[in-house]
Amino acid sequence: MSLDAATVRRIASLARLRVPEDQLPRLGQELNAILGWIEQLNEVNTGGVEPLTGSAALAMRMREDVVNDGAQPEAVLSNAPERIDAFYAVPKVVE
């Protein structure tokens, strides 16, 4: 598989990363090199293997249904780049 400029552009847009047009080819090459190297995994026979996802624990603990958080609008908003009253503010979204 190889990444052309159009694919890099699509992936960058999916990831909401602005990539200047003139950097697309170089970035494509870099990503291709990494993907090419990664593809050695195809040598491994993984038939019948269950994917591993991390922790060794088998079952997830559950919390009790108790309200013990929230009620801290200032703490939640204090780092906001822009706020209006008790809201975060972003450029108007037109649906």
Partner: peptide, 21 residues
């Protein structure tokens, strides 16, 4: 796009793109 394009450095952008792909 502007925030993330400028806020992340080259290696982080590279890995985000690989991961997204």
């Amino acid at each position: 796009e502007r925030t993330r394009g400028e806020g992340f450095g080259a290696e982080v952008r590279r890995r985000i793109l690989i991961g997204t792909y």
